[in-house]
Design a protein around this nucleic acid. Structure first.
Lengths: 339, 339
DNA sequence: GTGAAAGCGCTAACAG
DNA sequence: CTGTTAGCGCTTTCAC
């Protein structure tokens, strides 16, 4: 028996070589229990020697399942998504699913395109980050009946099940602690809030806590994501509110930039000014002083999100899940200096 | 005319609604110039109102092109890949291609599986990191005639075209400079070299330069990737070679760990001991003292790799491309203290 | 338990 | 310029 090596083998090649029908070969691969031991062994052997691997497109065309999950994330250049997505992917891979990643660059239109592209490619399910997007996209997913879950945010009554944490509550915890320490004049440096409910939630956590404690509203500066950007934001904050004793940052990267810039300005942290971050990425323990921040379970979230979408894809229903965060108290936060 | 909204529309639905054949609709989408203005307009209008979007699998099945590029990277949890891959993806997206990412976790078997999975999914081309892998995989790609390019390494005579830089040469430049400064007892902390030609090349750059200068061979410690790991490696290095005046690290992350650990041990950098990194990620300017390192053009490399694979996919041939690196001299490297 | 046959939705000759 | 037709490789009834 000879094989044409110049072409990748098809089901038919295997069937012919094994002396069975294509249906039987297909069954050996998809429902082995429906084929008698003897036949199965022979077929699988041929599959192996021929190096046969089913054509994905043909299979998807008829089966209407692709074993593919799509994820649309704002950017890959951010340690926090990278780690969570890696965990997400690890679980998918383990369960025989492939991850298709698209990034939106924080652009709502690009995100919409990405969602539609992924849908057109037959993604069995989708992972989205946060809830803040055009409601039409939720309709679209419903119409196409593509299951999806939201991660990095938690909202039990949202349009989609979510796996995340309470951004507002976590930030509130941090702020309460800072108030206990005696801080009153507080500045906030946040990433862009538009279309980003994580940023919105965190800022709201600060606002609400100060309001509840009867303290003055915080000064808020918004900036793009990045270390240098954090430094620039500090400059703007201090020019508007030179007497703040605490700068609360929306994430660790901005906080790292603030700490660096403070040092350049001769402002001692935390003696002159305290700084806090959010996320607890590796960076937090690298800067000097080490960063007081909110620890977020990235890997656990990625894994839980993967389990959630896989459950949805196989027809099970899932509950939204809030993961716990915790306060990491380190040396960048101290009581304000007496004045 | 009524449409069944419960089903995603097919080519046939569009054809029927427009009163033309499916072939004409297909042409409107794939070769508009072959259809007369009037017909095209009408068809495209229906496409729009129906919200028709071609079924990816069906198209791939017959066209044998998927407009998909696969990338197999060691890990996403590494700023250097993240940034380069983001650039890679940006270019692909712009040209209408989708990126499929798989990560191998630095495991050669997992990498082989990922390559085969991507191939089975009909990736039109592949991006691989580095050259060091089972030669059978190159045969596999050749047999399946799947074009591929290697990034992060440069080797003009390699089995695949590459877009990268000269790891060995770049490190040699750094070491030469350190020798000029007067360092003699030199330690190296490298990531795992097995299957990682970037790490191998960098270590070789140190070895070769010292050899050529008639200096003693360096002490080499190998470790997993990570900040804490860098610190642990410093402990091991110092226990074996307590008198090193310079620790050359294979990447910035390890170097950051070394600097932190040195501070914990009461070793002043660079007064007691100099430290260098490689990659020049944002981290390099965050640690104190700032890191002397080798600047690598991540984005340019990602973009060039994208152009290369797209050229191959469309049948053009490409030349391997070496991108320039440069030395970033910062304060973590200084002449050794007199003893 | 296995085979025959009918498509899945689309593209690409080939006619007209 | 447009329609007809023949599959692409696979899964899945429906018979046997």
């Amino acid at each position: 028996m000879r094989f044409d090596m110049s072409r990748t083998p098809t089901l038919e090649d295997v069937a012919e070589a094994a002396g069975v029908s294509t249906a039987t070969v297909s069954r050996c691969l998809n429902a082995p229990e429906k084929v008698v031991e003897e036949t199965r062994r022979r077929v699988l052997e041929i599959v192996d020697t021929l190096g046969y691997s089913p054509n994905f497109s043909a299979r998807a065309l008829v089966a209407k399942r692709t074993q593919t999950i799509g994820a649309v994330i704002p950017t890959m250049e951010n340690a926090i998504f990278a780690e969570g997505i890696q965990a997400f992917q690890d679980v998918l891979q383990e369960r025989g699913f492939t991850l298709l990643i698209a990034s939106s660059g924080y652009d709502p239109n690009a995100e919409g395109d990405a969602i539609r592209t992924l849908a057109a490619r037959g993604a069995d399910g989708l992972l989205l980050i946060g809830f803040d997007r055009d409601p039409k996209l939720y309709d679209f997913l419903a119409t196409q009946s593509i299951p999806a879950v939201v991660a990095w945010s938690y909202s039990p009554g949202g349009p989609l099940p979510s796996v995340g944490f309470d951004n507002t509550g976590a930030m509130a915890g941090l702020v309460s602690h800072a108030l206990d320490l005696g801080h009153v004049r507080i500045g906030v440096i946040s990433g862009r809030q538009k279309g980003n409910d994580r940023a919105q939630g965190r800022v709201e956590g600060v606002r609400a806590t100060l309001r509840a404690a009867g303290k003055p509203a915080p000064f808020i500066v918004e900036t793009d994501y990045g270390i240098a950007e954090g430094g620039g934001a500090l400059d703007r904050l201090l020019s508007e509110a030179p007497d703040v004793t605490l700068v609360i940052c929306g994430n660790d990267v901005l906080a790292a930039g603030v700490i660096r810039r403070a040092r350049e300005c001769g402002l001692a942290v935390p003696q002159h000014i305290s700084v806090t971050g959010f996320d607890d990425i590796a960076l937090a323990r690298l800067v000097d002083p080490e960063l007081t921040t909110v620890q977020v379970p990235h890997r656990a979230m990625g894994e839980a999100a993967a389990r959630a979408i896989l459950a949805l894809v196989s027809g099970d229903s899932v509950e939204s899940l809030a993961l716990p965060t915790s306060l990491c108290l380190r040396s960048s936060l101290a009581p304000p200096r007496e004045r």
